Amino acid sequence: MTSLVLASGGEFVAPGVKDFFPPAIFGSVDKPMVLLVLSVIIIGTFFIVATRNLKLVPGKFQFAAESVYDIGRNSIAREQIGGKDFKPFVPLILTVFTFILVNNLYGLIPFIQFPTMSHIGFPLAVSVLVIYPVYHYVGFKRHGFVGYLKHATMPPGAPWFVLILLIPIEFFQKFLLNPLTLAIRVFAAMFAGHLLLLVFTLAGEFLLLNGGFTVVVAPIAFLFAIALTFLEALIMVLQAYIFALLSANYIGAALAEEH
């Protein structure tokens, strides 16, 4: 653990990995687990309430729900999977998008301030246990076992001497690397962003309370924390969108007639 020692003798202990593992609330259940379950309740309640009294001219709440649905259905699923095959996968893509989004946005909510996806196990579970089986299943179902292996690892038109090198690379990417990078991307963004916010916020507080000349420097740390908050909000939304986009892209690639 690094530390910053100031002239007045106070010591600032920088936040680190330990701050992402809060103590258990009861038994082995901790804050991230509770937030994960709460996100499912929030998403379910949001769509149930927003759609229970649909109107031709939507109110603000219905409009918000329809906008989120439109992103999942048309901007992501239809574009990446294709107009012919996308409809059965709209619920999955919409669920993945909203689930990642809510768990990311926890990092900006006062008194919660913890993006659940900063724990690698959660995005990894969504990627490996949900998205990975789905896109390989639909690929095998459409093309057959041998056909899908050829579809996934052998680009059409490639000469045989290139395929010798290309097949193991493509196999490694499609069957091992894709689900890992899908999870690591959102995890790394949430972990790094939250850690930076902690550093500037806690450093600003420490500099302010430490007294002496450091009081003058404290507002700079707080200004950086505010700027990073807005940047982090944008990244949280983008990472949820990218996660859902790549998930749909993998499904679309598995279903495609051509590699």
Results as ranks from 00 to 15, higher is better:
T2M: 14
V5L: 03
A7R: 14
G9T: 01
E11M: 10
V13W: 09
V13F: 13
A14H: 00
V17F: 15
V17P: 11
K18R: 14
F20T: 00
F21Y: 14
A24P: 14
I25S: 05
F26G: 10
S28I: 08
D30K: 09
P32E: 01
V34D: 05
V34S: 12
L36K: 07
L36A: 12
V37I: 12
V37A: 09
L38W: 07
S39I: 11
I41F: 12
I42G: 07
I43R: 06
I43Y: 05
I43M: 06
T45H: 11
F46L: 06
V49L: 09
A50T: 09
N53C: 13
L56Q: 12
P58I: 02
G59C: 00
K60W: 02
S67L: 12
S67K: 07
V68A: 13
D70N: 15
G72N: 04
R73C: 14
R73Q: 07
I76P: 03
A77N: 10
Q80F: 05
I81R: 11
G83E: 03
G83I: 10
K87L: 15
L92G: 06
L92A: 04
L94W: 04
L94R: 07
I100L: 01
I100Y: 04
V102A: 04
N103Y: 00
N103I: 05
N103F: 02
F114N: 04
P115Q: 03
H119N: 15
I120V: 10
F122S: 11
F122Q: 09
F122I: 11
P123T: 08
S127F: 10
S127C: 04
V128M: 06
V130L: 05
I131W: 01
P133V: 05
P133H: 01
Y135R: 08
G139I: 09
G144A: 03
V146K: 15
K150I: 14
K150Q: 02
H151M: 11
H151A: 03
H151W: 01
P155W: 02
P155C: 06
P156Y: 03
G157M: 01
P159S: 01
W160D: 14
L163R: 12
I167D: 09
P168L: 01
I169V: 12
I169H: 13
E170S: 13
E170M: 14
F171W: 12
F172G: 08
Q173I: 15
L176M: 07
L180G: 06
T181G: 05
A183L: 00
V186M: 05
F187I: 04
A189F: 13
M190F: 00
F191I: 02
A192H: 08
L195A: 01
L195T: 04
V199T: 08
T201L: 10
T201Y: 13
L202T: 15
L207R: 04
L208F: 14
L208A: 14
L209H: 14
G211I: 05
G212Q: 01
F213T: 11
F213N: 06
V217G: 10
A221D: 11
L223P: 03
A225S: 13
I226S: 13
I226V: 15
A227M: 08
F230Q: 05
E232D: 14
E232G: 08
A233Q: 12
A233D: 04
I235Y: 09
Q239W: 07
A240C: 03
I242A: 06
I242C: 07
A244D: 00
A244V: 06
L245F: 15
A248R: 12
I251E: 02
A254Y: 07
A254R: 06
E257K: 03
E258A: 06
H259C: 00
